[in-house]
């Protein structure tokens, strides 16, 4: 079980997240839903332990172990990984070498081809391509998703996995979620598009750095569509007075 307990985070004296608590049970699929600027990616970075993303207060527990002060590497070793919304490019490294981290991960050719197919890439065309500027943003994103499928992490945080990808992305994202779930892993999808969250077991809706709603995907998506679909201010939904008041207190 991965738990966030009362996570708050300030950057440049501005509160980005306020007392966020979440639980991610192993083997289930999760979504963190929210409009741009709600604090979703920040939350992903905090879970992964990126530099400059240490929580101001609160703690992160993995199987009851406090991992709040662990490095990225130490968290990755415990089975947490993150796919960035815009993954960087790497000069001179082929897709095959990238997926196996330069040969560090031992994986047979069939499995390598299978993960590339899962993200919609033809292995024959891509395995020798370089992970550099010759790949489009969408291709790069697919390679990044394939790379975490090779790792088989316990918790995979996928930050806007569909961004930069064509209209077939929903099917591809679902393939990725199902692949992770197939070996007992826990995908956590961060998205502002409600249709991306339809295939999860549990969803959190965050707005302006607080959890506005949580529950099964259908009910959270319904509420998200109602509140955020008509919201003039993307970070202050008008329909939920209680939450809005709560938001006002610290904005």
């Amino acid at each position: 079980m991965l738990k966030l307990e009362n996570i708050s985070f300030k950057a440049d004296n501005k509160l980005i997240l306020k007392e966020v608590s979440m639980e991610f049970e192993e083997g289930k699929k999760y979504a963190i839903l929210g409009v741009n600027g709600a604090g979703k990616s920040t939350l992903g970075y905090i879970i992964m332990g990126l530099e400059d993303y240490k929580p101001t207060t609160g703690r992160i527990l993995l199987d009851n172990e406090d991992i709040t002060n662990l490095s990225i590497y130490e968290r990755a070793k415990r089975g947490i990984t993150l796919v960035f919304q815009e993954p960087p490019r790497f000069e001179g490294i082929s897709v095959g070498a990238y997926l196996t981290l330069g040969g560090k991960i031992k994986i047979d050719r069939n499995e390598l081809e299978q993960v590339l197919e899962t993200v919609g890439l033809n292995p024959k065309l891509y395995i020798a391509r370089k992970v550099n500027g010759s790949l489009s943003g969408g291709e790069r994103k697919r390679v990044e998703l394939a790379s975490i499928l090779v790792l088989k992490p316990r918790y995979a945080i996928l930050d806007e996995p569909d961004s930069g990808i064509d209209i077939m992305s929903l099917e591809m994202v679902n393939n990725v979620l199902n692949y992770i779930a197939s070996y007992g892993g826990t995908p956590i999808i961060i998205t502002h598009r409600e249709e991306m969250a339809t295939n999860v077991d549990f969803a959190y809706h965050i707005c302006n750095g607080i959890v506005l709603n949580k529950g099964d995907a259908i009910s959270v998506i319904e509420e998200y569509k109602k509140e955020c679909g008509i919201c003039n201010h993307p970070n202050a939904p008008k329909q939920n007075e209680k939450s809005k008041e709560e938001v006002r207190k610290w904005v």
């Binding site: 990225i72 590497y73 990755a76 990984t81 960035f84 993954p87 981290l101 560090k104 990044e144 790379s147």
Partner: peptide, 17 residues
Amino acid sequence: NRRQLETLMAKGLTEEE
């Protein structure tokens, strides 16, 4: 590049690796 390092470290490589 910091982001490159973090991307690889999030896959379980040490900073040196």
